[in-house]
C-alpha cells in the first residue's frame, strides 16, 4: 500500500519536474448524447469534396424523413469504413460490391437494402493514353498500369478478374508492377498526366468526368469495357439500440427518392434507388475468393 502511494505521488509529481502535466485526462466525461444520431458513411472512391457534398445532402434528407439526427462521417480509406461499420460507428454505408461483402461478412446481420438501377449491371472501363492506340484488352501487355484502391470492386477486383480471364497476369505482364492509385478520380488523372499509360476504373466516375469536362478525352480514352456485375449499394447495420421501425423508415426513404430529391440523385448519377439483397453479391464474393482477397 505504501508503495502504491509512493508510486502515485511519483507519477503525479513527474509532470511538475519534466514540465508535462497531463491534467486534461481526468476531466469529467461528457454524457453521450449521440445515442439516436444515425451516422452514415461512404467509401472514399472519388474526390473528397464531391463525396462530402452528396453525402451531406443524403444526411439532411434522411434526417427530414426519419426524424433522427443524421451525420455524415468521412473516411479516407475503404478498409477504415468497413472497420467503422463493423464497430457500429456507422449505421448506414454506401459500399462498393467488395467492401459490402467484406462488411456483411463481419456483421452477418447487416443487409444490403438499396442500389441504383445501374448497379445491377455495372461496368469497369480500361483507359489508356490515346496515342498508344490500344484496341483490345490483350494490347495492354507491356504497358504501365494502375488500379484504383485495392479494396475497390470496379477499380481493382473486377478489372483484375477480367484481366485474368484474358490470360493476363497483373504481376508479370505489365511494364513494372501495377500500382494502386487509391481512387477512381486519381486513376484517370494519373493516366492523363502521363504518370501511367493505362488504368482501370469505375464506369460511372469516368462518365461523370467526361460529362463535366474533368478529363481530356483527346489524351486519354476508354479502350475496353468489362461485362456487367453487381456493384455499389447501401448497406444498413443491425441498428441495435434504435427503434424497431427505423430500419424500414430508412429503407423507404432511400427507395422513395424521386425528382424532388433531384440534386442528390444527380450527385449519385441516377434517377432513383431500387431494392437489392445480400444474395446479389455472391458472385463478387466468389471472385474475391478466387483472387485471394477473401479467404
Amino acid at each position: 500500500m505504501k508503495k502504491l502511494v509512493s508510486f502515485l505521488a511519483f507519477v503525479l509529481l513527474l509532470g511538475l519536474l519534466s514540465g508535462c502535466a497531463e491534467d486534461k485526462e481526468e476531466a469529467v466525461e461528457q454524457e453521450e448524447t449521440t445515442k439516436q444520431t444515425l451516422k452514415i458513411g461512404a467509401i472514399p472512391d472519388q474526390d473528397v469534396s464531391v463525396l462530402s457534398r452528396s453525402m451531406g445532402e443524403v444526411a439532411d434528407y434522411l434526417s427530414a424523413e426519419t426524424g433522427l439526427e443524421v451525420e455524415y462521417v468521412p473516411s479516407v480509406d475503404y478498409a477504415a469504413l468497413v472497420t467503422a461499420f463493423e464497430r457500429g460507428e456507422i449505421q448506414l454505408a454506401w459500399f462498393g460490391g467488395l467492401t459490402g461483402v467484406q462488411a456483411r461478412n463481419r456483421v452477418p446481420d447487416a443487409e444490403a437494402i438499396a442500389q441504383r438501377p445501374r448497379d445491377e449491371e455495372f461496368h469497369s472501363v480500361f483507359i489508356a493514353q490515346k496515342e498508344l492506340g490500344l484496341k483490345s484488352l490483350s494490347d495492354i501487355k507491356g504497358k504501365s498500369f494502375t488500379f484504383g484502391s485495392e479494396s475497390s470492386t470496379s477499380g481493382h477486383l473486377m478489372p483484375r478478374y477480367y484481366l485474368m480471364e484474358e490470360g493476363i497476369n497483373a504481376e508479370q505482364d505489365f511494364n513494372g508492377n501495377p500500382s494502386y492509385s487509391g481512387s477512381h478520380d486519381k486513376t484517370y488523372k494519373l493516366v492523363e498526366s502521363g504518370a501511367f499509360q493505362t488504368g482501370a476504373l469505375n464506369e460511372a466516375v469516368w462518365e461523370a468526368a467526361v460529362a463535366e469536362g474533368k478529363v481530356d478525352t483527346s489524351k486519354v480514352d476508354v479502350f475496353y469495357t468489362t461485362p456487367a456485375y453487381y456493384d455499389y449499394h447501401w448497406t444498413i447495420n443491425t441498428l441495435e439500440g434504435y427503434d424497431s421501425g427505423v430500419k424500414q423508415k430508412i429503407t423507404d426513404a432511400l427507395l422513395s427518392m424521386d425528382s424532388e430529391q433531384q440534386t442528390i440523385l444527380d450527385l449519385f448519377q441516377t434517377d432513383k434507388f431500387i431494392e437489392t439483397k445480400n444474395e446479389n453479391y455472391e458472385a463478387i464474393e466468389k471472385v474475391a475468393k478466387q483472387i485471394g482477397i477473401i479467404k
Binding site: G19, C20, A21, E22, K24, E25, A27, E29, Q30
Partner: peptide, 24 residues
C-alpha cells in the same frame, strides 16, 4: 518551460473540448 507547459495543456484541452475525445 512555460511555453511547453501551455502547449501541453492547450493540446489536451483542444482534444477534449474541440475534438470531444476523452481519453477514458
Amino acid at each position: 518551460f512555460l511555453l511547453s507547459l501551455s502547449l501541453v495543456i492547450g493540446s489536451w484541452m483542444y482534444l477534449y473540448k474541440v475534438e470531444h475525445a476523452s481519453f477514458f
